[in-house]
């Protein structure tokens, strides 16, 4: 009797594990399949979401990938997402690309590693995703093969990422109360597009973001230096200071942006003043 109970529990456990780790593709009805996105609008989404900073190693339009991301779990290499049919994503449908960006699921149904910030892009408005995809299709193709990630056991079992997603992925906003349109826009730019928290928020042992310490600074995964807190008590910058920094790269004391943040400022500088003010409003509203 006791033995059967154990077997029963084991079967249930395996079923739960199997279910939890399964991929959950993007619900097709979330996308207006068939609508053609606007590449012009998509260029700004591309800048706001910072796609080129990771997928282009030399700052060109060809998104050939190759940039290395060192972490506690191994080294990830940004893949080729140019329009090359063999080595990029030129053969993918709009749904395939949206499913990758917003659900972290590949066309053949595998989980992506969350070095790709799909947990952020999951909150993207589907029309923006379609515009972004339309823009990606205008970029040059490149036949450089993607480099395999250098990830050891057990993180090399992609199935286990289903458990990670179950624990850490979701579409809930971290900042729940946004009482002005500006703050709402800022939240969208920070939490759904800019993926600022991916670096500026500390992670737990499993690599999930500690939302209780949202934007309060973190160790640099590369092991060098620290990524600063953006909390207003720590940063001490005015909204104007933040917006000017994101526009020109100058800090309030006229030092300049450095490191990976240079790329971020180049991207955000392409948005309009209202968007930079919105990001500043969001950061000043952090608690």
């Amino acid at each position: 009797m006791r033995k059967r109970w154990f077997i029963g529990a084991g079967v249930v456990g395996i079923a739960v594990a199997y279910s939890v780790t399964a991929t959950r593709p993007l619900a097709p009805e979330r996308l207006e399949i068939g609508r053609i996105g606007s590449a012009t609008d998509g260029a700004l989404i591309f800048a706001a979401a910072g796609c080129g900073s990771c997928h282009s190693e030399d700052g060109t339009d060809a998104l050939a990938g190759g940039k290395a991301f060192v972490s506690d779990f191994g080294t990830f290499y940004a893949p080729n997402i140019s329009m090359d049919v063999d080595h990029g994503i030129g053969g993918w449908s709009d749904y395939d690309i949206a499913n990758a960006m917003m659900a972290g699921v590949s066309p053949d149904g595998a989980h992506y590693y969350p070095a790709f910030p799909y947990t952020t892009y999951a909150k993207m408005d589907p029309p923006d995703a379609l515009d972004l995809i339309a823009y990606l299709r205008t970029l040059p193709s490149d036949a450089t093969p993607s480099r395999a990630h250098d990830v050891g056991f057990p993180f090399n079992i992609r199935r286990s990422l289903g458990g990670w997603k179950f624990l850490f992925a979701g579409t809930d906003w971290v900042m729940q109360d946004v009482d002005t349109p500006e703050l709402e826009r800022g939240r969208y730019l920070v939490e759904a597009m800019g993926h600022c928290a991916e670096c500026h928020t500390p992670r737990n042992a499993l690599g999930g973001l500690k939302t209780g310490e949202w934007m309060q600074g973190a160790a640099n995964p590369s092991g060098e230096g620290r990524i600063p807190s953006l909390h207003p008590d720590d940063l001490g910058w005015s909204g104007g200071d933040i917006a000017y920094y994101l526009d020109t790269g100058f800090t309030p004391d006229f030092d300049t942006v450095g490191g990976e943040m240079v790329d971020v400022v180049e991207n955000i500088a392409q948005l309009n003043d209202a968007d930079r003010d919105a990001i500043a409003a969001y950061l000043l509203a952090l608690d």
């Binding site: 060098e224 620290r226 990524i227 600063p228 807190s229 790269g249 300049t256 942006v257 450095g258 490191g259």
Partner: peptide, 17 residues
């Protein structure tokens, strides 16, 4: 001018707070 400063700071200065 800012671009010229950060061109160096991007590659050659430690990032931290």
């Amino acid at each position: 001018l800012g671009g010229a400063c950060s061109a160096c700071h991007r590659e050659y200065r430690q990032r931290d707070d």
